[in-house]
């Protein structure tokens, strides 16, 4: 069902200059991938990966200031806009994830600061480059307990000041949640989800009773059959 021109009468739109549609494509920018590998080689954890319109690098927490300054200041990269900053709890480690935009590439650049220990996650602040990251880092601190060294206003932003927990951590389970019982244990990004049928048959096969709620934690720690890490 198309809409004919006769159905709706629209007054002619007064446009001074007719703009050209953007020439940017959503294909992966291989030149960016190569440049990142050349310039940041020693600092990277693993290779530069790219999927769809996003190029991804992983760095350690000690390299954050150096890598971000290079990406921001270098005329080759010009990642001037920080699109997003967030914390992630993969179930085994904490991460801080940055998404950057540059006019030099059609891709998003995702920088993952990987391997922050869950009992004491610390990462340097990027407020020296983008002072607006202050609140985003406060949010990540509030939700995950990640301490950003160098942020001068790192206090809770959503939860009350006397609150003790970090709600978005994977071991913070909702008591009234019907979809996932606490007995199912903590989800880990590194372990793929096992369908319910699989769990049920596993329980029956092992002859360990029918209380799936108690059995699930042990079964969920089963490694992937292929050995491939989906988080990588």
């Amino acid at each position: 069902m198309g809409i004919g021109r006769s159905a709706i009468s629209v007054p002619p739109f007064p446009s001074a200059s007719e703009p050209q549609p953007s020439q940017r494509s959503s294909a992966t920018d291989t030149a960016l991938k190569r440049r990142l590998q050349e310039r940041l080689g020693p600092q990277l954890l693993g290779a530069v990966t790219a999927r769809q319109d996003t190029t991804e690098i992983r760095i350690g927490p000690t390299d954050v200031a150096r890598v971000m300054t290079l990406l921001h200041d270098d005329p080759e990269f010009r990642f001037l806009i920080l699109s997003d900053l967030c914390g992630v709890d993969t179930g085994s480690v904490m991460q801080v994830v940055y998404h950057l935009w540059s006019d030099a590439t059609p891709d998003w650049l995702r920088v993952i600061v990987d391997g922050l220990p869950r009992d004491d996650p610390r990462a340097p602040s990027v407020t020296f480059l983008w002072n607006g990251a202050e609140w985003a880092e406060r949010e990540a601190y509030d939700m995950f307990g990640i301490i950003f060294e160098g942020n001068r206003d790192l206090r809770r932003i959503y939860m009350p000041p006397d609150y003790q927990s970090f709600p978005l951590r994977k071991d913070f389970l909702l008591a009234d949640d019907a979809a996932r019982s606490p007995g199912q244990g903590v989800r880990h990004m590194e372990q793929t989800f096992q369908p319910a049928e699989y769990r049920r048959t596993e329980v029956l096969r092992q002859g360990l009773g029918s209380d799936a709620g108690q059995m699930a934690p042990g079964l969920q720690t089963a490694e992937l059959a292929s050995g491939e890490d989906p988080a990588r």
Binding site: V88, V97, H188, M189, Q191, P230
Partner: peptide, 12 residues
């Protein structure tokens, strides 16, 4: 920013 671990629920 979405993460999926292969289940029907978002991981993050």
């Amino acid at each position: 920013y979405g993460m999926s671990d292969g289940s029907d629920q978002p991981f993050r």
